[in-house]
């Protein structure tokens, strides 16, 4: 199968978040950027699906500036055949999905995988929007993906209060959740090979954004913790009942 994996780059999960003086942007000093963890799973799953039979190419796509190229190289080192960067400043999900949709229409993919959400903006929107732009079916939050050879896939997905197993015809958009697989770490051979794999830069279509980010803030700081001894459980329960009003 020809599979496209949408990659976003995000601050490492241990990053202590702070913002620039005008609160418009993340303070990037000292921040390590990584492949969004769900996109890393999507990439590994794409490679596994093709290794399992059939073959095909795996392309990764990112909408963003040149600063994302190390992350794209890493994806090539993990095993993607080709990387594409659409050279636009990502503003919101509709713009990102619109740009990716345009690229998908110009190529021939059987399957598009995206992450369940990006761990920076936590929208969980790009996959669904992309499916609608392409008029393809969508399976959101997949925990298992199988098949593909007969033109359809069997997917398990999380839903409110349970889990569903369903079948979907290709081409389709599927968004990836943990449990799908374990992320792969690039090996030396992969890192060497990545240097010569194609990383194509495309001009954006200029899809407009709907939202404008005004400012960031840190979450309100919490009051100091009030401690209770083990023989004071009635007092703790009383505090939860009377002060916090949560019991």
């Amino acid at each position: 199968m020809n599979i496209l994996v949408c990659l976003s780059q995000v601050p490492d999960t241990t990053t202590k978040i702070s913002f620039t003086a005008d609160n418009k942007e993340l303070n990037k000093a000292g921040v390590q950027f990584i492949i969004n963890p769900y996109d890393e799973l999507a990439l590994t799953k794409a490679l596994e699906l093709n290794e399992g039979g059939g073959g095909g190419t795996v392309v990764v796509v990112h909408v963003g500036g040149a600063d994302a190229e190390p992350v794209l190289r890493k994806a090539l080192a993990i095993g993607a055949d080709q990387a594409v960067r659409i050279n636009a400043v990502p503003m919101d999900a509709r713009q990102v999905a619109g740009e990716i949709a345009h690229y998908v229409r110009s190529a021939s993919f059987d399957l598009v995988l995206a992450g369940r959400e990006s761990i920076d903006y936590n929208g969980g929107l790009v996959g669904g929007m992309l499916a609608e732009y392409l008029d393809w079916p969508l399976v959101n939050v997949a925990t298992a993906i199988e098949g593909g050879a007969g033109g359809s896939m069997v997917v398990c997905r999380d839903m409110d209060g349970g889990r569903e197993k369903l079948e979907v015809n290709l081409p389709a958009v599927i968004t990836c959740q943990k449990e799908l697989t374990e992320p792969r770490i690039p090996n030396m051979r992969g890192i060497m090979a990545a240097r010569t794999k194609p990383l194509q830069v495309l001009s954006p279509q200029g899809v407009a954004a709907d939202m404008q980010l005004l400012e960031h803030a840190l979450p309100p700081s919490r009051q100091a913790c009030k401690f209770f001894e083990i023989h004071q459980m009635d007092e703790l329960v009383e505090a939860l009942h009377q002060q916090a009003k949560v019991l």
């Binding site: 601050p11 999960t13 990053t15 202590k16 978040i17 913002f19 993340l26 761990i119 920076d120 903006y121 936590n122 709907d210 939202m211 404008q212 980010l213 005004l214 400012e215 960031h216 803030a217 840190l218 979450p219």
Partner: peptide, 18 residues
Amino acid sequence: KVQRTVYSNKGIATYSVW
């Protein structure tokens, strides 16, 4: 003007929507 948490609860962003 809407607010949502970003950076996995480590920040809050305010957006304007029209």
